[in-house]
Design a protein around this nucleic acid. Structure first.
Lengths: 224, 224
DNA sequence: CCCGCGCATTACAGACCGGTAAGGAAGGCG
DNA sequence: CGCCTTCCTTACCGGTCTGTAATGCGCGGG
């Protein structure tokens, strides 16, 4: 769990950093709004604690900028401004919670935990995509360039595995280990047959062929 | 957007209801903890506002119960208890936010909006639960009281449907419409056979039986 | 250029899934 | 108490899925 703290007051920052680290989180610190913004933009934080009054770029603008760019990291606003208007503004800007200074560390910790819980509870992606391919893991439907493709369970499993490892060569042994529970029957050509069946459905009538053979190595899903 | 208010104080409830309705939400109201619990369990609310001191079942227990059953609806706790300990407890129980009375309605609205924003940005739930049953929609695995249950695709589909409608009687026609694409062959006993197969796996060797018959009506998943 | 290995392709067969049908139990009503 | 309706249970069977095996093709090295 990675958390970003954006706070210019050195005392508060140190206090929060120490406490959250002791709680087992990996915590980074930015001491102005501009740094905080680029850090949040470039690293996949699971949550952020952001002060409002910051040098170089204020907290609200920072949050708005992140939201505009599609960064959904949950943000806890930490501010000395106590008025209802300020709180409402903070939440409207895209904050997920608002805590006023002074605060009890126990409460900060609990609120951060609540944000993390919510953020990760639903984090597993339910749809996968690679190039023209799209998989819906819930309905087990697959499409290429929008065209539905009918896949059997095993075929879907293989395609999912290839999509998850798109661009990387996966060996037949890896496929065997992943799709069949054990490492099972080493002398059989199930994988080759399965790949063939998948190609019939995924690459037939499309350009270019996505499922490619790497002789002596395995297979790759090569996305344009 | 559907919101549930669980609040026993009639004045506060009316005030919040009115305000949120004017803000464009569909709002339901429960005036004690037990009602609130079953409503939250059986209807797909997008958020809930829950008081802590409630008749019949207190708010913390309500929230814990929901979380235990896999209901992830974001909850804003609304309470007169202001202490840090109370707030921490509320969040630890599974609350997503904590607002103390008295409060400004503008802030409540902004916090509810923040919860909704976060709740809907994240995808559809990937796990379902009802009583001792838990379903993983991604892996299509099911467990009862932690024990894995092997289900065929059709059986899983039926159980999912029952879990989503736990506590409500679903007719055979509904099941037919939902599991088979069309309204299909009206004179066949597929549903009965399927129910039987599901029971063999879900209720065999467990107490009590969850899948119950309502003669002339259909079936219910009755959770303890 | 030819041979061998790796992979592709095809055919086949067993297992499994799921729908049909028929007979039996159980509940409800007169 | 008996009949009728509703549902349960079981057996069967056709289709689909998936692994096995045999054959064919092509790349790459010697």
């Amino acid at each position: 769990m990675r958390i970003l703290i954006v706070e210019d007051d050195a005392h508060i920052a140190a206090f929060v950093l120490k406490g959250l680290r002791e709680a087992g989180y990996a915590v980074d610190h930015a001491s102005d709004g501009e740094d905080g913004f680029s850090m949040a933009l470039n690293e996949p934080y699971d949550a952020a604690v952001v002060d409002l009054m910051l040098p170089r770029r204020d907290g609200l603008s920072l949050i708005e900028g992140l939201r505009q760019r599609g960064v959904a990291t949950p943000v806890l606003i930490l501010s000395a401004k106590r008025s209802v208007d300020d709180r409402v503004r903070g939440l409207q800007a895209g904050g997920d919670d608002y805590l006023t200074k002074p605060f009890a560390f126990a409460e900060l910790k609990a609120r951060v935990a609540a944000l993390l819980r919510r953020g990760t509870a639903t984090a597993q992606p339910t749809r996968l995509a690679a190039g023209p391919l799209a998989l819906d893991l819930l309905t087990r439907e697959a499409t290429r360039a929008g065209v539905p493709i009918e896949l059997q369970p095993r075929e879907f499993g293989l395609l999912e595995y290839l999509v998850r490892n798109a661009g990387r060569v996966v060996s037949k042994t890896e496929i065997l280990n992943h799709l069949w529970d054990f490492d099972f029957d080493p002398q059989t050509n199930v994988v080759e047959v399965l790949v063939h069946r998948l190609r019939q459905k995924v690459d037939a009538g499309f350009e270019p062929a996505l499922v490619q053979t790497v002789r002596g190595m395995g297979y790759v899903l090569r996305v344009p």
